Simulated assay, not measured.
Amino acid sequence: MVQSALSRPGQRERYDSKIGQIDWVFVALLIMLAGIGALIQYSVGGMSWEPWAYTQLRNFALFLAMALILAVVDLRFWLWMAYPAYAVSLILLVLVELIGDTRMGAQRWLEFGPVSFQPSEFMKLAIVLALARFYHERRPEDANWSWWLLVPALMIAVPSGLVMHQPDLGTAMLILLTGGGVMILAGLNWKAIAAAAAGAVASIPLAFFFVLHEYQRNRILTFLNPEGDPSGDGYHILQSKIAMGSGGLLGKGLGLGSQSQLNFLPEKHTDFIMAAVCEELGLVGGAMVLLLSGLIIIMALRMAALSHSHFGRLAASGAIATYACYVLINGAMVMGLFPVVGIPMPLVSYGGSVMLTVMAGFGLILGVKVHRYQELPKQSSMLANLME
C-alpha cells in the first residue's frame, strides 16, 4: 500500500509523505547514542547537568530538528548548492589564513561580532557534496582512470593543505580520508588506489620532518612510546588506558570513576570521553557505544545504496564516511592505537561544532532515503527545475 501510494503523481512531493518516509529507527539510534553521551557528561560533570550535559542535550535537540528539516529538502537543492557551498567554505578557509583568530597556538577561528566558528567544519560536508556533484556529472570511465581525476584530487588537496597549515592535523586527515573515500566509491581504478597508497607511505618520512609541526611530531613519538614521558606528552594516553582498563566488564558505576572524577583523565568530556565511558560503564558500555555507531553506519550505507541517483548515493556515502572516520580515529586514539589528534567521538563527546556538522550529514542521509526515487539532472539547470 505504501509503495502504491508513493507511486501516484505528486504523492512523493507531499510533506506528510516525506515525513512518513524518514527512517525513524535510524533517528532512534541517534537519540540513544546522544543519550549515552549526555549521561556520561552528567557523571563527569560532578553528577550535575552543568556545565556540559544540559548544553549537549539542548544542542542535540536543536540539531536533530535541523536534520529532520533537511531530510525533506529536495535533493535538487543539495545538488545545486554543492559547488557554492564548497566555494564559500574554501573562501572562509583563506580568510582564516588572513584574519583568523588564534587560540592555543592555532589559527582556526573566524569571528564576526559575537559569532565565532571554525570554517573547517563546514568543509567536511562541503567536500562531500562537491565531489558527489562532480562525479554525478561525469561518465563512469572518467571516475575509473582519466585526466579528470586531477580535478577531485585538487578539490581535496587545497582545503586539506589550508587546514593543515592552521594547524589542525585531525580535521585535515578527515577531509583527506573522506574525499579519498568518495573517489574510491565513485569507481576509482585499483591501480590508482595502490599508487596513492604507496605514495602516501613513501611520503611519511618527508611529512614527518618537513611538514608536521614539532608538537605533532612529539605526538607521533609519544604514540610509539607513551611510557617515555609519562608525566608529559604521554600523560593523556596513559591515563586513558588506566581508565579504560580499570572499568572491567560492567564498570565502576556513574560518578565513581577515579580517573575521571578526580580529574586525572584529561579532556574527559571531549576527546577522551570514551575512556570515561569504559571506566564507569565498563566494557559493556563501551561496546554499546560502538555497536550503536556500527548500526548507524550500516543503516546509512543501506539508505545510500537505495538512491536512484548517483549524486544521492555518493553524497550519503561520503557523509557517513566522515562519521565513520570520527568513530574509528577516536576509538583507536583512546586505546593507544593511533596518535592523539584531537578527534572527538561524535554525539558522545561534548561540543557543538562537530555535532552540527555530523547532524547536517545525517539530515542529508535521511534526505537521500526520503528522495531515493528521484532522478537528478546532470547539467546546470537544477535551480530552474527546483523552482518549477
Rank of each mutant, 00 (worst) to 15 (best):
V2A: 14
V2N: 13
Q3W: 12
A5S: 10
A5T: 14
L6W: 06
R8P: 00
G10K: 05
G10I: 08
R12G: 07
R12T: 06
E13H: 10
I19W: 02
Q21I: 09
I22G: 10
M32K: 02
M32C: 15
M32A: 14
A34D: 00
G35N: 11
I36N: 02
A38R: 00
Y42R: 01
P51K: 09
W52D: 08
T55A: 13
N59Q: 09
F60M: 04
I69G: 11
A71P: 00
R76E: 02
A87K: 10
I91M: 15
L93D: 11
V94Q: 07
L95F: 01
L95W: 06
V96I: 13
L98R: 15
D101Q: 15
M104G: 09
G105M: 08
A106Q: 14
Q107A: 10
R108F: 04
W109A: 01
L110T: 03
L110K: 13
P114T: 13
S116E: 14
M123L: 07
M123G: 02
K124H: 05
V128I: 14
F134Y: 07
H136A: 15
P140Q: 13
P140Y: 08
D142R: 02
W147S: 15
L149C: 02
P152V: 05
A157D: 07
S160F: 07
S160L: 12
V163Y: 11
P167Y: 06
A172H: 03
G179V: 04
V182P: 09
I193P: 05
A196W: 07
G199Q: 10
A200S: 13
S203E: 05
I204G: 04
A207F: 09
F210H: 14
F210S: 13
F210N: 10
V211A: 08
H213K: 15
Q216Y: 03
Q216F: 06
R217V: 03
N218C: 04
R219M: 01
I220S: 07
I220N: 12
L221T: 04
G228H: 10
D229S: 01
G234K: 14
H236T: 06
L238Q: 00
Q239E: 07
Q239D: 01
S240E: 08
K241M: 14
K241P: 03
A243I: 02
G247M: 08
L249N: 05
L250S: 00
G251F: 13
G251E: 02
G255A: 01
Q261L: 12
Q261T: 00
F264W: 10
F264D: 01
L265R: 09
L265C: 08
P266Y: 03
T270H: 09
V277A: 03
E279P: 00
G282Y: 01
V284K: 09
L291Q: 09
L292M: 00
M303S: 04
M303V: 12
L306R: 15
S307F: 12
A315V: 11
A315M: 13
S317M: 12
S317D: 12
A319L: 05
A321N: 15
Y323S: 00
C325R: 05
G336N: 06
L337E: 14
G342D: 08
S349Y: 05
G352Y: 08
G361D: 03
L366T: 03
V370M: 10
H371E: 11
R372A: 11
R372H: 05
Y373H: 15
Y373K: 15
P377T: 07
K378R: 13
S380H: 12
S381Y: 15
A384G: 04
